[in-house]
Amino acid sequence: MLEGKFEEASLLKKVIESIKDSVKLCNFNCSQSKGITVQAIDDSRVLLIALKIDSGSFQEFRCDRDLVLGLDLESLSKILKQGNNEDYLTIIAEDSPDSLLVVFEDKKKDRISEFSLKLMDIDSDVLTIDDMEHDCSITMPAYEFAKIARDMKTLSESLQIIITKDSVKFNAEGQIGSGSIILKPHTDMEKPDESIKIELNQPVVLTFGAKYLNDIVKATALSSTVTIKLTDKAPALFEYRLPSGYLRYYLAPKFDD
């Protein structure tokens, strides 16, 4: 049996809102040691999502046997919208479940609401993702990266990211013209999350589909910072930290044809 209680429903709500536009169906793998893990590829096969909600993200977590919950994320999102952000949220499944029980408890009122979500059998390919060495890593405020991704998409379908030891440059060239945003590393002592940190082994220039970057920044509400790891001719890793765990997006770069 699985029983996981979140202190606040907002965490799972934000996670699902971050991925449901990229992936419609996915398996939630549940185990006592790993908590909940998900690996899913978006419908256009360009973006891979890796989610880990450790047991530490829960107020209470128990999973007697490894379980796979096949979920339609659009349906789960509808159910999660029934509860308030501050409610306790408990998810419960039997050992061979055909449904997931979702329970909201209002902390102030004596109100408990229960919903049952039908589960599905979902075939999915699982890929091995090793901890790769990266040419460079940038950590920056999540909202700032989101603004860049959204603004630059209005200019071009592609966004080029150029990293040197002194700066990170976002470059877009489109039919109406072009634009670039240059950020330099700095440390904000009072608000550390406002800092921009660049770690560089070697400079990198990569181009990504602006559409997918805009899918990724839907996770902005999850974390105050985003870490972007880039390697020449390899997928970029965009990581949003959870209180205990992470939401990672691996995005395939574009190449000159």
Partner: peptide, 14 residues
């Protein structure tokens, strides 16, 4: 022109 490869082409199936 730019080509967009699949993410699967970068990883090994488990």
């Amino acid at each position: 022109d730019e080509a967009q490869p699949s993410i699967k082409s970068f990883f090994i199936p488990d």
